[in-house]
């Protein structure tokens, strides 16, 4: 479904992503793990078109999407839940969800019902301003908002960041449910333990390069990964 081939991304003179390649197949949950500053979020933002790669290609469902502006990718079936949630704080919960379906002409009301079924808290708070929600609720809103476009590939950037452990469990439970329902997911996480336990496959990023890859179980058992990211 998604094939990233040898991308190089720069912030001015800083070479942030150095020849990264990986792929995500239909129905898979793939995770990119790594320390703060390894380039995980930069990679996601390059795929979603907010940043651009100088070289290499990104193919999504057989089409090269490198260089396509971000706002055109949603309609192609790519949705991103950005780092730090970035919900529209001054808009209501329901307005946020409507924005998620901005380019969709299809059954928006039906999708809204589906999102509300998955996140009943959001339904209770549909008329509330998003800025009044708790961190966990905002994360659910950000995920619901991305699901409103009925994406083929859902990219999640640090969904557990800043949340209490019980909420982290909830978020990962939802990721698991989405996976079971057949959604393809690319997950970026610092919480490697949780990420690898829900992922089919994972890639380890270190200072802009992929250093290891394997199935979730393989990486969980890998000594280097354990030492560096799992506190073992």
């Amino acid at each position: 479904m998604l094939k990233v081939n040898d991308i190089n991304v720069y912030y001015g003179a800083i070479h942030a992503i150095k020849g990264v390649s990986f792929e995500v197949n239909d129905g898979e949950v793939v995770t990119l793990i790594g320390a703060n500053g390894a380039g995980k979020s930069t990679t996601l933002q390059t795929i979603s078109g907010l940043l651009h790669s100088r070289t290499g290609s990104i193919s999504f469902q057989g089409e090269n999407i490198a260089g396509v502006p971000a706002h055109k990718l949603v309609a192609k079936g790519l949705a991103q839940v950005p780092e730090g949630r970035r919900v529209f704080l001054q808009m209501t919960v329901e307005e946020n969800l409507e924005m998620g379906a901005y380019t969709s002409s299809g059954n928006v009301a039906g999708r809204l019902e589906k999102v509300y079924d998955r996140f009943p808290r959001l339904k209770e708070r549909r008329r509330q301003i998003a800025g009044t929600l708790s961190g966990g609720e905002q994360q659910m809103l950000a995920m619901g908002r991305a699901l409103m476009s009925d994406p083929k590939l859902l990219m999640l950037d640090e969904p557990s960041m800043g949340l209490a452990p019980i909420l982290v469990d909830q978020i990962f439970q939802i990721i698991h449910e989405l996976h079971v329902a057949g959604t393809t997911i690319l997950l970026v996480e610092q919480n490697a333990q949780m990420a690898l336990s829900v992922a089919d496959r994972g890639y380890v990023l270190e200072t802009g390069r992929i250093v290891t890859s394997g199935t979730g179980a393989e990486l969980l058992a890998d000594d280097n990964v354990k030492r560096a990211y799992l506190g073992g």
Binding site: L50, H71, A79, P82, R86, L89, T103, A146, S149
Partner: peptide, 12 residues
Amino acid sequence: EDKGAAQLMGIN
């Protein structure tokens, strides 16, 4: 509010 997030919604 947030131009980056707006782009991710498909807003030009």
